[in-house]
Design a protein around this nucleic acid. Structure first.
Lengths: 190, 190
DNA sequence: GTCTATAGGGCGATAGAC
DNA sequence: GTCTATCGCCCTATAGAC
């Protein structure tokens, strides 16, 4: 038997989500989470740079899928390429839906967590943007496509969480993308 | 002569920007800012809910202009309506360009401030979205238009700060909006 | 305006894996 | 021996309570 129970990170994430749900984020201390996970406060901060980060463990996995989505995309228009990043990432949300939904609710009603989520989403957009530039897509087109695909994903995710799109996250993405297309069609540049 | 020097808020904002520029955000304490502005630490926290907020003073003015931009827009397509919010807000950036540029640099290279900025931009998007829904634009169209107009503004702002668009922020907005139109044109929905 | 709890960083000690 | 995960104690600044 080893000195420590395995998967300290997983235990801390689970403990944090439980406590944030029941007591709320503000009134949960880092020490509370650590104790519930069977580690010390100091260990908590060695795994997570701050109290928010614990709900964003595994975001580097997400980033890798995003990058793969760009690499896997064929020689398609910029917006399609950017959207492919999120199509490729969608499965990791779908396979852990219960956790994702609980987590989303907690994040949604706490400004501190919301803020961190926006930073994470923004860094995904930056990753997509840079990967597209590396593939030879012009800089401004890459920036606009990456940002707008991220908006599409965010809105689709919102619908999927609400249960309005019970047919799956990818279909929700396609549906919101169609909406973007139609809005842009109506728009007349001066 | 009054008991206190006037414009405590303005002095704290200026002091904070100076210190964040020279020492960096992390190694500037709230007390440092307060002292430099000639107030007590307690006064600082009475004006600003936290150390980040000091660089976002006046964001309610911005929100009001945004709302006016939506109200002033004629019966135009959704994306045009959302963009009009930022066209209307553009002048307050242009009249204080020096301050805005210094501020943008500081925000850009500190994750804590960057995070807060993203939250502020997101709440502008939400304000636009709700104002559009109130004007009778369908919910999903409002969401997509508000988010994408915000992306357009952010990218245009970036170019304008870099000096690439010396002809003004509004022209930068129009130019990025054209890019969005052309990207959406290429995109073929499945 | 004063007091205090919490966030979160620094550092050295400890105990297993290899 | 090295490397890595944990602990424990000390510290300061933030930010909320009173």
């Amino acid at each position: 038997m080893s000195r420590w129970e395995p998967d300290a990170t997983g235990r801390m994430v689970a403990a944090a989500l439980d406590l944030y749900e029941t007591r709320g984020y503000e009134s949960t201390t880092a020490t509370d989470i650590a104790i519930r996970a069977g580690v010390t406060e100091r260990t908590f901060f060695r795994h997570f740079s701050d109290k928010r980060e614990v709900l964003f463990a595994g975001s580097s996995d997400l980033e890798n899928l995003i990058l793969q989505g760009i690499a896997d995309a064929g020689d398609v228009p910029a917006l399609d390429m950017a959207l492919n990043a999120y199509r490729t990432a969608a499965p990791i949300f779908e396979t852990t839906r219960d956790f994702i939904v609980r987590r989303a609710r907690v994040v949604l009603d706490n400004p501190n967590l919301r803020e961190r989520e926006l930073l994470k989403m923004h860094s995904l957009a930056v990753v997509i943007r840079n990967a597209m530039i590396d593939r030879g897509v012009p800089p401004t087109a890459s920036a606009v496509a990456a940002e707008c695909a991220t908006s599409v994903f965010t809105i689709a995710f919102e619908k999927w969480i609400d249960g309005a799109e019970s047919e799956g996250l990818i279909l929700a993405i396609e549906s919101v993308a169609r909406e973007l297309k139609s809005i842009a069609d109506e728009f007349q540049v001066e």
